[in-house]
Write a protein that binds this DNA or RNA. Structure first.
Lengths: 219, 219
DNA sequence: GGAATAGTGTCTGTGAGACACTATTAG
DNA sequence: CTAATAGTGTCTCACAGACACTATTCC
């Protein structure tokens, strides 16, 4: 970067698009909003001197009526012809929120939840623009993170049983997981609280908490 | 993204910075150029309707005198105060090139090679701006890729011995690797040619080639 | 022969996956 | 009691790491 005045260079419009996931009784779902082109990832242009993360949170709040948590950058889409209105560079993002957070948006009718298995397939929902690539990369990252850590985005409450955890992981992975292997690999990363569940059917189960409270879905 | 005219939004300047690695007799090194602020990663502003990859290759060619190969996006740096000249958003990139490619730039005196172990340490080279973060993330990715694949960026010639490959991997990793484990894990991913080295000291070794010719340093 | 490099065989520990069994609760 | 869930023990397989040995070449 040299010392040429900045005004000498034409500048692109900068936008963000966000793949937001949540887990419901139906499994892993993605949050979509209705645009001119149909169902799409919520996005917005970045305001002057606004941070990308702030733009993501703003778009989730105003377009989807939900409170984002920790937007994570995925990839920059820079095809100069990707938007017919002009030169627009978009940064794809990822976020994961608990079901309670999307409830408001759902009541308001501003968002649509779609199971990830129905995105991009025949008879399912087709996303516009570069959104399919954002979706695919975001889904890959979420599944990667959950295959290595108990609860990278803190979807579960402070304490939880291994059964709760496995139900969550199976929703994210979209398939059943072997029970014994799952428990052994997860127990290493969890801290037993000494308390037990009760009131449920079957034998009460030990409650655990995450060993390292801080989130870290990197690596 | 709504249908509001694009001109309604202020736009940031868009730039790229690239951490380019190469392997020399001294090990893994990074390509730096001299700017007002001292040694820095080569970078440039993105021209109108130019792709990020094209801007990266252009900056490597004009500032470093080297031919880039496959720039890969790392991360967007969006702190509005990161550049005193105004609102500049930078996309950090990564590339890895063979030693032969940097030779021209070295003769021209436009670049400086610095061993990665001397970047960011006391008594070593301090990078300006966000460049330390680009460097660290880029180094992590290169080491990750080489710990899983034989030669993700094709630094070795078409055929090579396991000894050559191990020397390369030890340069990248910055540490010695266990010989037997290294060979067994790599042999699975390589195809023996049936030919042997000759003219070297010691027992001649089988030559291998990469099983899948195409590059893929993703995952 | 000695130094240097290449290649192989074997043992141990760890962890994944499969399978089976016991334990504790609700109804 | 049965159904349902939780928890444990054991076996096998694959692979990493350590170690030791043999093989082939240059000097």
């Amino acid at each position: 970067m040299s010392s040429v005045p900045l005004t000498q260079f034409p500048r692109p419009s900068l936008a963000v698009d966000t793949a937001t996931f949540t887990v419901t009784g139906r499994g892993l779902e993605i949050v979509l909003v209705t645009e001119d082109v149909g169902l799409a990832l919520p996005g917005t242009f970045v305001h002057e001197r606004e941070r990308l993360e702030a733009a993501v949170l703003r778009s989730l709040r105003t377009k989807a009526g939900i409170t984002g948590r920790e937007p994570e950058q995925l990839h920059v889409f820079d095809d100069p012809d990707r938007d017919p209105r002009g030169w627009v560079v978009t940064v794809g993002h990822l976020d994961v929120v608990p079901g309670s957070v999307v409830a408001e948006g759902l009541r308001g009718g501003s968002i649509t939840l779609v199971p990830v298995s129905e995105v991009g397939v025949d008879g399912g929902v087709q996303l516009p623009y570069d959104h399919p690539r954002v979706f695919i990369e975001a889904l890959r990252r979420v599944r990667d993170a959950y295959s290595q850590h108990p609860d990278p985005w803190g979807l579960l409450p402070e304490t939880f049983s291994l059964g709760d955890l496995q139900t969550l992981h199976e929703a994210v992975a979209g398939e059943e997981l072997p029970r014994d292997t799952f428990r052994r690999s997860m127990k290493r990363q969890l801290e037993p609280t000494g308390d037990y569940t009760d009131g449920r059917r079957g034998r009460p189960s030990l409650l655990y908490r995450n060993r390292s409270a801080g989130h870290s879905h990197h690596g």
